[in-house]
Design a protein around this nucleic acid. Structure first.
Lengths: 162, 162
DNA sequence: AAAGATTGAAGCCTCAATCTTC
DNA sequence: GAAGATTGAGGCTTCAATCTTT
């Protein structure tokens, strides 16, 4: 993936304006910028997490579990917190289980439900992984709270309970 | 994917602070917010583009081609402009070709290179698809230029030529 | 009927390997 | 050897369908 010397997003916006789509150029530029930043962040995060054998999704599950009293959370709850499809949770937990970081338990009160439970090996990973991730986060710079606030406007507009 | 009544991102940040990771909570919240906004935007865009039989990546290729003098661009150029891996371009163009929206030509001067060329059916799609996307873009609201500016700081920090 | 979870299919992305041509 | 493009593999996501339990 060769990187050009100029900014492809700014160039694209110039083209939209040039072709008479001035009314959409700002929105389009915003969308492509978000896509690009998402791509860059994920790339760096995956790089940092790779030595731990974790993806970002799996790291998030580990962290979520480590925050609970007993390191346990139902599959459905995980999906809600991470805002992903139940199938994604099943897949991620399956991999975490294969790595010996988590295991599944039946829910005591509701046989339909499955509980993901943190294992010692999983808990040992959370701290170091977070430390490494901090290097990425702290290098972000800028006024992040303000950025989040502006992004939250888009979330709210889409119906998110911000 | 059930949506909870509270904001999972704000709740997660509260948890990080609670567990003594105050130094990373702002960065983590920024990352998860970007991930969420990316997810929401892509979901809405895919929904809008679905009737046209297009994905966002394929729409972007069509638009890029429509901006050129003769509707033609080498595969490699497309990858640079869209900032995606060459394999992604190959895959997207293959689908566009299957839909009769684009076709492949050999490069006249360099036999190694392949050129993607817009077909009439493809050109007819660009305008209407863009009109529909405008509905999404215009509903974004807020100061988009300012948002892009703040996101560009992250891009620049990652080495993008902003 | 509704809820919780899982499976299989399909799309998009990346990477590594490969092939042809410069 | 380097560049352009393609292929196959693997990861993540979603959806639709399915199965069990409530």
């Amino acid at each position: 993936m060769v990187v050009p010397a100029f900014d492809p997003i700014a160039e694209a916006r110039r083209q939209w304006d040039l072709h008479g789509w001035t009314d959409s150029s700002a929105g389009m530029a915003a969308v492509t910028t978000i896509v690009r930043v998402h791509q860059l962040l994920m790339s760096r995060i995956d790089e940092v997490l790779e030595p731990f054998g974790l993806s970002f999704a799996r790291y998030e599950i580990l962290t979520l579990l480590s925050f609970t009293r007993n390191g346990r959370l139902p599959m459905g709850k995980l999906g809600q917190r991470l805002q992903v499809h139940p199938a994604s949770v099943t897949s991620a937990v399956k991999r975490l289980e294969a790595g010996g970081l988590v295991h599944r338990l039946p829910h005591p009160d509701d046989t339909r439900s499955t509980i993901a439970a943190l294992l010692p090996a999983g808990r040992r990973l959370v701290g170091p992984a977070t430390d490494r991730l901090n290097l990425v986060f702290s290098s972000l710079g800028g006024d992040l709270d303000n950025l989040v606030e502006r992004l939250n406007r888009i979330r709210a507009q889409a119906g998110d309970p911000v």
